[in-house]
Design a protein around this nucleic acid. Structure first.
Lengths: 190, 190
DNA sequence: ATTTATCTACCTACTAGTAGGAAGACGCAA
DNA sequence: TTGCGTCTTCCTACTAGTAGGTAGATAAAT
């Protein structure tokens, strides 16, 4: 077996969350897509809250290790940031993952189960921290020219990325992502 | 009577949408909050899709007339933009409307009823158009210095605003909105 | 022999939505 | 003014369908 049932469930659930948020899908939807009965999903993930929590956890960990390996394997801070933005641009353009799981969930965070909400928040913190460290490194090497502190610039950049995803989705115009995010990177470069 | 039942329903529904999106509330929730029976809501709004469509329509119209009156009654483009950002900053800080209705809905636009989705898209178009015209006017008066076209700068700004809302909500830190959006205005000023 | 994964069958609570009626408000004619 | 029909609003009572979740059996794997 190349992929466990639990992983199939998580994959399907993730794309359903990306499409419509926490309340936008049901166990029946997963059941249909995976090809097992509804009750079998409960065997792997007793409750929906638990399922989404695991899903967000997996997403956060993957993101963290992906970002970490960018820092390790991509030469300079400018290129690291570019690679991050390229990743999302590709995901949006080919519609493979047209939105960040945690961004959708953040929009409805007020009515999310507590555990899910805190995991979503943590992803935002991790991403902001990563951007901060890249910007800081770039500024020290005089590759970036920051108007504000690395922390603040990271928050601005993160907001632009999420906002760009939202605009691209709302206006049904995937190219908007690059059009919004590109100039932001350009303006940071020294 | 100072407020009709239909208006009460729309008000309650709007704050429920802001909190949890299209699938984050039910007629029963509205029923509880307004103090009428579930069936009575169907009298005013036969279907949920219709209710949300009217709600988005009302929201879009209010936004449009609000933005229009800013352009008419606030002296200069810089101040008009500032007033728009101040409005949202106030809404977020006092938690009276901590998120844009259309931004929440945009996040789940893929599974929204068609009519609702198109109304949401139109709000994004309207807002982008307003920002474009303010930026264009400001650039002509040498009050703004734009790196890109007014259209592109408007998209960037709109994305920042929505992203800032999202970050403020996700991180539970309302001040973040101003911290993100403030510098963006500052950098546009000539 | 126990654990794991799946199934059928079911439950309760809730979903959006409907049917039909009661109470009142409206205008209008005698 | 009274009385009549109509329209609006809200109600109780209901429907069919779906939500998340459970119980218990079966079969295979360890």
């Amino acid at each position: 077996m190349e992929q466990t049932t639990a992983e199939k469930i998580l994959d399907v659930a993730q794309s359903l969350v990306v499409a419509g948020g926490y309340n936008g899908f049901s166990y029946a939807d997963i059941s249909d897509a995976v090809g097992i009965r509804k009750a079998s999903i409960h065997h792997h993930f007793p409750t929906k809250a638990e399922l989404v929590q695991v899903l967000v956890d997996r997403y956060t960990q993957r993101a963290e290790s992906g970002l970490k390996s960018l820092r390790e394997h991509v030469p300079g801070p400018v290129e690291q940031l570019q690679a991050y933005l390229n990743y999302w641009q590709k995901c949006i353009l080919d519609a493979s993952e047209p939105f960040c799981v945690c961004a959708v969930l953040a929009a409805e965070i007020q009515m999310l189960p507590d555990h899910v909400a805190s995991h979503v928040r943590r992803h935002f913190e991790n991403l902001a921290a990563w951007l901060t460290s890249v910007l800081k490194a770039g500024a020290e090497q005089k590759l970036f020219r920051l108007d504000k502190s690395p922390e603040e610039e990271a928050q601005i950049l993160m907001a632009c990325v999420h906002g760009a995803m939202l605009s691209a989705r709302a206006l049904g115009h995937p190219d908007l992502f690059a059009a919004i995010v590109g100039p932001q990177l350009a303006r940071l470069r020294a």
